[in-house]
Amino acid sequence: MNDAQKLCTFTLADLVFGVEVMNVQEVLRFQPMTRVPLASATVRGLINLRGQIVTAIDVRARLGFSTLSDAHEPMNVVLCTKDGVVSLLVDQIGDVLEVEPSTFERPPTTLPAVLRDVVRGVYKLEHGLLLLLDVERVVLLPEHRGVEDAA
C-alpha cells in the first residue's frame, strides 16, 4: 500500500466513515428519487444522474440505524464499484483527509457484526476514529450475501 491514503469522509449518526477518493465519482446534495416497490428497505430509490440510473442505498438502513428525520436531507456519495455506479445516502459530507497507514488497525472484534461486515478497519486520528468503509461490501445487500458468498 502506498504511504498516505486519501479518504473522502462523511458522517452517519455518531460515526465518521471514509472511502478511498478513487472510488468516489462525485458528491451530490439530495436528489429527487423514485422509490422501488418490493425492494429491500436498504434501497431508497433510483436517481437520474445525467441520464444514468443510479440506485441510492440508505446506509443507515443498511447498518440498522434509525432513519434520519425528514427535516434533514441526506447527501449522495456516488461511488464507482465493480458492478457499476451506486449512491450512498449519508448524513453529512466531511473533508478529504490524508491518513497514515501506520494509524490503521483491523476493526475491533467487539464492533457489531453488521458494522464489522462493511468496515475494513479503523484509522486512529488525532480527534476521533475514522472507519474505512468497504465499498463492495456495503452495496452488497443482505439478501444477496448468501448467494455471493457461496459463489
Binding site: T55, D83, V139
Partner: peptide, 12 residues
Amino acid sequence: KPLGKELKRLDV
C-alpha cells in the same frame, strides 16, 4: 436502462 445489480432480483 438496466437496473443495478442490487435490484436485478426483482422480476416485476
